[in-house]
Design a protein around this nucleic acid. Structure first.
Length: 283
DNA sequence: AATACGGGGTA
DNA sequence: TACCCAGTATT
């Protein structure tokens, strides 16, 4: 019997944020999940409203051009997510009668949907008993159950089995939403607010004396001062800056694909043509 | 199992 | 400056 469910769900009902994608269509849930991949909630909120107003169903987005989609994505980051969402919308419009599929296994065949997003759409759009493991849930349960500060970079088979055993037999989507919210608002990565935690008495991390563990990063993260990547080009297109052919050639001297894409000035082609390596814009 | 992929907010 | 964010796809 899961001794965590009652206090956490009860805490959730009292303290949850009023997020618009908690009461919307499956498409609305899907759009939110794409936007929320590695992007904080507060930054997604206005953009989600904008997109749902402009493209209320998959078919509507499918009709847009990739360049329009990239531009509307704005500064959310990882613009490839916009192209994947666009491609997924076209598949749903054509092959799924404009209905978001319910089966996580089918969802995961769509571009941009992996283990987490498939489970999240299954749970939040269709109230399925899927195992949802985002970074918030993983951190919360790593602390409570395992007594460690940070989860591994990627879920292991053992972790999945452990969390599956913890999952309530009914209303797992509420359990998922509640644990996610608790991880996001209280059991935060850096300065957790343990005084507000409804299950502090069951936390093994606390019982261990809050030992610090290394946060093993998912990947080397060198964004910062000198990183200018594809997003720079997207941004330039968005702001209607003139990208001269000379400037582009200076960036990628031997990339004929880039030159070709530049001539079309199609944002999507250009983005795909840019080599996946670090570069610096000329001063 | 590692690595690349954005951008903005925060301590 | 370094860390963080409702991850995915590729190698």
């Amino acid at each position: 019997m899961n001794q965590l469910e009652k206090p956490i769900v009860s805490w959730f009902k009292k303290n949850k944020r009023n997020l618009p994608w908690r009461n919307t269509t499956p498409w609305g849930v899907m759009v939110s999940e794409y936007m929320l991949q590695q992007t904080p909630v507060n930054r997604v909120l206005p953009k989600w409203d904008e997109w749902m107003k402009r493209w209320p169903t998959p078919k509507d987005l499918a009709k847009a051009s990739p360049a329009e989609v990239i531009t509307a994505w704005g500064r959310l980051g990882y613009p490839r997510r916009a192209l994947r969402l666009h491609a997924a919308a076209q598949i749903i419009a054509e092959d799924f009668n404009n209905e978001v599929p319910e089966d996580p296994a089918i969802l995961q065949t769509l571009p941009g949907i992996g283990e987490y997003t498939a489970a999240a759409i299954g749970a939040f759009a269709f109230e399925k008993q899927t195992l949802v493991m985002d970074v918030n849930i993983r951190r919360l349960l790593t602390r409570i159950v395992d007594g460690n500060e940070h989860p591994k970079p990627a879920p292991t088979t053992r972790e999945r089995a452990s969390r599956l055993a913890l999952q309530p037999p009914k209303n797992a989507h509420i359990w998922a939403a509640a644990t996610m919210e608790l991880g996001a608002l209280v059991c935060t990565s850096k300065n957790p607010i343990c005084e507000q935690c409804p299950v502090i008495g069951q936390c093994n991390w606390r019982k261990n004396g809050y030992p610090k563990t290394d946060l093993v990063r998912k990947s080397q993260d060198w964004h910062g001062t000198d990183r200018k990547c594809r997003g720079t080009i997207v941004q330039a297109l968005r702001e209607n800056e003139s990208l001269t052919e000379n400037a582009i050639k200076k960036l990628w001297p031997d990339e004929s694909q880039v030159e070709k894409a530049l001539k079309t000035l199609q944002a999507d082609l250009l983005i795909e043509a840019i080599p996946r390596k670090r570069y610096r814009l000329p001063a």
